[in-house]
Design a protein around this nucleic acid. Sequence first.
DNA 1: CGGGAGATCCTCT
DNA 2: GAGGATCTCCCGC
Length: 217
Amino acid sequence: MIERTTGGLGSVLPRRWYDRDSVAVARDLLGRVLVRSPREGELLVVRIVETEAYRFDDPASHSFRGPTPRTRVMFGPPGRVYVYFTYGMHFCMNVVTGAAGTGCAVLLRAAEPIDGLDEMARRRGTDASLALCSGPARLCQALGVDRTLDGTDLVRGDELQLRAGRSVPRDEIVVGTRVGIRSGVDRSWRFRVRESPFTSRARGAGDPRPRVRSRTR
DNA sequence: CGGGAGATCCTCT
DNA sequence: GAGGATCTCCCGC
């Protein structure tokens, strides 16, 4: 159970904050703070620096063809986490947005590690801070997020919290197309903090990031 | 530093 | 049975 009084990170964002279009929430998620306690006495804190919006009327979205067992949470109420498993080994996490039943969510693609870096490094198998959370699957691995957290409520915040942090002004946000999809490539629903070196390496998108070599210890 | 392949298994058709 | 909202290693230049 995470304390309700984690200081300096702002308050826990309320349910209504999530009850908006996923594109608006994706933009607003930048600069917000994710707090995770994978076990007693362990606190992991990151600042979100890259997101992508997905919608029901969007061929790239898992919700495009209607609800399935996997996407059940995506069609539930806003403010919960939709976690999916992919490529046989990776987890990725989304924040569910909009009214229940609409199937909209925001993929968390990258974050800046703030606290608990040693634990994140251990989970990731690398010491390089730039490589800890700079990708959707990396972020989940660093925070110890897997499918057992699918459906977790960010507002109640027992295992995972989203706190206000400090929102990022529009002129510090770079908008672009989404990564790793075959359809819906025309929609510019990817958002990242311009000055942050902690964003993901967007393959083939002309978006060079600092190269980080993972080093296991 | 960039490109490509392999890993690995769940999900839906 | 095919392919995936990815990552890492290894190769070549």
